[in-house]
Amino acid sequence: MTLTPIELERYRRQMMLPQFGEAAQEKLKSTTALVTGVGGLGGTAALYLAVAGIGRLILVRGGELRLDDMNRQILMTDDWVGQPRVFKAKETLEKINPDVKIDAVFEYVTPENVDSLVHDADIAVDCAHNFTERDRLNAACVRWNRPMVEAAMNGMEAYLTTIVPGETGCLSCLFPEKPEWDRRGFSVLGAVSGTLACLTALEVIKLVTGFSAPLRSELLTMDLDRMVFAKRRTYHDPHCPVCGSQNQSLSRTQVTTSLSDSLIEPLKSSLADSPENSLVPNY
């Protein structure tokens, strides 16, 4: 996709990076990224993808802005409290970079919408604040063979990896079960979710452009309390109920017939928590 004179000027400084150049910028421009969860993590990742010149962003997030979001959700403004976050995110990003096409979807990730959302995107960025949406997105990315950047945090700790179906393990390989989780109960400092968000956006940019080395089959763990960063090998389970070879062929057959989650979701529902769960993390 050819760059306009304005785009050539806007992105000039990043195209100066060795092995980036116009070719990488054109790849970014021709990419659609799906970002689920537009909060301290997803909203900030979307910001850095927008300023980097991604072609199109699909932002997915239900719910209205709360005052206690404002310590980290940097696309929001104080006067927007009580309004749907995702529309303000679109407005802010369009003001910052009008060349990026932005679709705002005022919904959570559901069994009904997940397949069409993933199908429309080249890459997914998993930033939801609960395991249910994360598991749904992971399963759909496996079904549709889309890479997914997995980013999650709790307090001063965070982790990041890139999942490429058929090549790396998936989220279910990494963690076959999920603990109970309170989506509003985790502590978060904006600089921590923002740090993870920048690395998440960087991971997307690397994967899309082929520039530099993404975290394929590696889990980057970050302890921002002690400032310890480490990379660990991610497990790939050949018998994974989501991406294992037998189940993958079953799920693709299912998608061909009805595009529904009816086969996969019962498998997953026994593993996943409820987004309404109010218990503390149980580990």
Partner: peptide, 10 residues
Amino acid sequence: VSIVPAVAGG
């Protein structure tokens, strides 16, 4: 030995 729990904060 590192212990890494699943988390879902975003």
